[in-house]
Design a protein around this nucleic acid. Structure first.
Lengths: 343, 343
DNA sequence: TTGTACGCGTTATCAA
DNA sequence: TTGATAACGCGTACAA
């Protein structure tokens, strides 16, 4: 087992006091070049690495960015994580993440756990925190960024987009392409999904094409297989449905496969629009329309906002809206199936 | 900002010494019931939560399970993570993970970082560590589990399967179904992928159907779009190819879509087999054959092995082989396309 | 530019 | 069963 190399040993080796080594490591410019060289050499020879626990105890804060996400198995959140990782490369910060399983109570508890470590920053998904969680966050002594969604009342900073508006735009797109009997496919139906539905509903009503009966949802998490089932159920009840706006891309892919099984031409007889624009959407046959949400960038920006704040730089606007964007593909070419579209 | 409640404050409140509080929390049976009651009350009233940094410093070890995976955006690893999380629920351990980006050098460095925290256990992906990393792990003072793959020489414990054998079995399946000119589609081509290729090659050669020219690979990470491109390239050179064994499911899905675009019937003119059995494989049209790798269970078992070791229980065999299993679906029904198959 | 004294919150060790 | 003392490794505040 690796014997622990301490500051003191490095100091002895370099012929200086421990505190000088400490300084040389954290703020190299505050120690003489020659001294620093000796110290660096000693560090290298001994393989010294600082003990994060000791450091946290001495400073009263941890060089940790806490990240709270609902799930690790959902590509949407891992893309955000990926952006966070990228933004933190070459920094002194570690990422520490925890999973809420879409449960506000769990989230509340985990916020407490994180704050107890005095993290350098906190990144949290969405805007649906409990009141207690909200109070905890309000009193947090570190920057807090809510990601994935924007809303009127940020805890501190926010980077995301309006799910309502994005869904409305997608619905508008369906209508523009000539679909007149659009349905909605939804899974899990957490608050964020509900807001997407609200966007769909608002826009469909505005276009005079809304029918509550063409809404097919389930409480279970989304999946490709689930998308297939939802479409089958919806068409069973309402065969006249001529397009579906799907909660997310997994459902959309499943809907596409089910349409194939049922012999329903896409987009001619059925238009399909997903949400999130996972990589596969572009590669599908027919290619699938979706709503691009800049997940990687959200993570990267969240980190940048935190780092700016910590460094005393300007973090920019408290609410950063990374507009979602419709990527129109063949699956929504329109009921006639002959409309040209960008790839 | 939340003022920190310390052991000393709880002790004062309960009218005992700090160490007694510490004991009451960690080993309740070693303090008198009545004392314990007073302490518990004080803890609750003050909302005391132990400081993990102080604890780590004092004990010389952290209640952390370190996890090293190549990527967060690959569903394969997040499923393992999910299993780990599950196995650690209701334990005192935290998960801490780091991303190697498929780079052995990064992995080596991160192992050092983790070990410095004296974690309670370490879970690491695969068997392709550098020599230096290997030495670090050999001297580690905590249980180490290599997941995702089995091999002859575990650092400590292992839970996974043979990628070579799994690929060979998949290839055997293609041959058994009557395909005689199988090709291989591969992306990233890291060592683990190479071993899958080796399994494909060995079995194809044994069956007298191997042709190195029907191998299409790329160094870029796999994706659905990439699978489409690889298939197109392969068929461009070798239109006689009658089946493809794909590196993973993303490629297989892409191959399916590309076959559709090219008007090639699956499975009649082209058989497709993936690897990992992501959820979508089952829902595709036609349903896609794949190799089920028990990723969630790998994570859960790895955790269980570590916990057993820490608790002084028997962790079971050092090398746990969670056999991969072929899930035959319609995409490999055979060149004639009329072979019945389980769903 | 470098060093000294002390404390961060907890637990190990030993004593009562 | 409980308590006093002394670390754990590092950083802050101040002094030199």
């Amino acid at each position: 087992m690796a014997k622990r190399v301490t500051l003191a040993e490095v100091a002895a080796r370099a012929g200086v006091s421990p505190i000088t080594v400490s300084r040389a490591l954290r703020r190299p410019d505050t120690v003489q070049a020659e001294t620093r060289a000796r110290i660096d050499a000693a560090v290298a020879e001994l393989g010294y690495v600082p003990d994060p626990a000791a450091r946290a105890l001495a400073t009263g804060r941890a060089d940790v960015i806490g990240v709270l996400i609902p799930s690790v198995t959902n590509a949407v959140f891992t893309d955000v994580l990926s952006g966070i990782y990228d933004g933190l490369a070459d920094s002194r910060f570690d990422v520490q993440y925890a999973i809420t399983r879409y449960d506000p109570g769990t989230e509340e508890k985990l916020i407490g756990v994180f704050l107890r470590q005095r993290p350098a920053g906190l990144i949290i998904s969405g805007i649906d925190q409990t009141d207690a969680a909200r109070r905890l966050l309000d009193r947090a002594s570190c920057p807090v960024v809510q990601v994935m969604e924007t809303g009127p009342d940020p805890v501190d900073m926010m980077v995301g987009f309006s799910h309502h508006d994005a869904a409305a735009a997608a619905t508008r797109h369906l209508i523009d392409r000539g679909y007149r009997r659009p349905g909605f496919l939804g899974a899990r139906m957490d608050p964020r999904t509900q807001r997407r539905f609200a966007g769909f509903r608002a826009e469909a009503e505005a276009g005079g094409v809304f029918d509550l009966d063409r809404v097919e949802t389930t409480e279970v998490p989304s999946s490709v297989g689930g998308g297939a089932e939802l479409l089958r159920a919806l068409l069973g009840r309402h065969p006249e449905t001529d397009a579906v706006f799907c909660n997310n891309d997994d459902l959309a892919l499943g809907a596409l496969f089910e349409a194939m099984r049922m012999g329903i031409p896409v987009p001619g007889q059925l238009g399909i629009c997903g949400f999130n624009d996972l990589e596969m959407m572009r590669a599908a046959e027919p290619s699938l329309t979706s709503v691009r949400t800049n997940r990687f960038e959200m993570g990267a920006r969240a980190v940048e906002m935190i780092r700016a704040r910590l460094d005393g730089r300007d973090p920019g606007p408290a609410i950063l809206d990374l507009k979602a964007e419709i990527l129109a593909r063949r699956s929504t070419d329109g009921p006639t199936g002959n409309r040209p579209v960008e790839t």
